[in-house]
Amino acid sequence: MTILTRDTGIRIRTGRSVDPAIIGPSVVLLTMLATYAALSPHFLTFSNFSNVLVQAAPLVILATGQTFVVLIGGLDLSQGSIVSLVSVVTAAVMMNHGIEVAILAGLGSGTCVGVLNGFLVGRLGLQPFIVTLGMLYMVAGVALVLSEGSAIFGLPQPDVETFFWFGGGKIGFLPVPLIIAVLVVLGARHVLGSRVLGRHTYAVGSNASVAALSGVDVRRTRMWVFLISALLASLAGFLLSGRVISGQPLLGAGDLLLQSIGAVIIGGTSIFGGRGGVLRTVLGVLVIAFMVNGLNLLAISTFTQQVIIGAIIVFSAWLNTLGKTRA
């Protein structure tokens, strides 16, 4: 459904009606599920689906933050390094000050990166790609310096049990990381669909100049978007660290950042900004998560998996471009 925003006069998509952009990823996901179920007897089991969803929960949180940035037409390349920084800071502080202070320090350190990103992009007007690329290296370096390049093990009891509960515990039969991911998605959808910040995010992504002329504080919106991205990356880093109950300076390295961006693109959020949402992103995460899981069950090499995921991302970007051209 398209509405005319009361405070900006800009038409945006609220995402409350059936979204045609999810048809393609949905077909891909359902086809994969049917194919893997036919090829592997271990795929359609409760334990397998539960493991996939638990493992995908931090990526859902990370990609939700990335969605905000993509909606304004940018990218946050610092997310992976924030995950590593939060892991190291949380574990290091926990060694001497306990879990409560460690949580505040870990999440606070990652959030500070978002504040700096937002200031450089929003207030100084620097390009998001350049700023977050620089932060990728800087923050990753800080994580390595703080940990001296080694993992931080031997966390004290009973803090380590509480730490693991966030990353691998359960409430009843529901995994804690999955509950947190669902709450994050619902909160993000509420912000994007019903709050002023959400409307301004879509407006800036659609046309920043028009948004500014319509009364939107473009700089402030960009600052908030990068703050949200960093905060959610910090939360994802905390959950991942809890799962491995240690501080890992390379926890956010590798495919995590690329999967975060890939999930947003595969889900159908426009790389040009202004169109998309978190439910699309969740669908993109599920495509990646179940694809990797099914290929692992079929003993397909990780090299082949990278080729397949890359091809799907390129195809999704092409569809995004076609949609932009039609618009």
Rank of each mutant, 00 (worst) to 15 (best):
A38M: 15
L75W: 08
S87L: 03
V69H: 11
I22G: 12
Q79C: 02
A63S: 15
P41Q: 08
F49A: 14
S84I: 03
D76Q: 03
L30P: 09
S84R: 07
A34W: 10
G74N: 03
S26T: 13
I82A: 01
I82H: 02
L77I: 02
V89P: 00
D76H: 04
I72E: 04
I23P: 07
I61S: 12
L71V: 04
L71M: 08
L59Y: 02
S47H: 15
V27D: 07
S47T: 14
A34E: 08
S81T: 07
L29M: 08
T67A: 12
P58E: 11
S26A: 14
Y36A: 02
A91V: 01
S78R: 03
G80N: 03
A91W: 00
G65M: 03
I82K: 01
L85M: 00
P41N: 10
A63F: 00
S87C: 01
G24Y: 09
F68K: 08
T45Q: 05
N51L: 13
V52R: 05
S26K: 04
V86W: 05
S87P: 05
V69Y: 11
P20L: 03
V69F: 03
L85G: 05
A56S: 14
T45I: 11
F49K: 09
V88G: 04
V86T: 02
S84M: 02
L62S: 10
F46C: 07
P20E: 04
V70C: 12
S47W: 08
T67Q: 08
V70S: 06
L29S: 10
S87H: 03
F49H: 09
V88P: 00
Q55G: 15
M32F: 13
S40G: 14
H42D: 14
L62D: 07
T31W: 04
S50N: 15
L30N: 07
I72P: 01
S26P: 01
F43M: 06
A63Q: 05
T35W: 15
Q79T: 13
A63V: 13
I72A: 06
A37H: 14
T35Q: 09
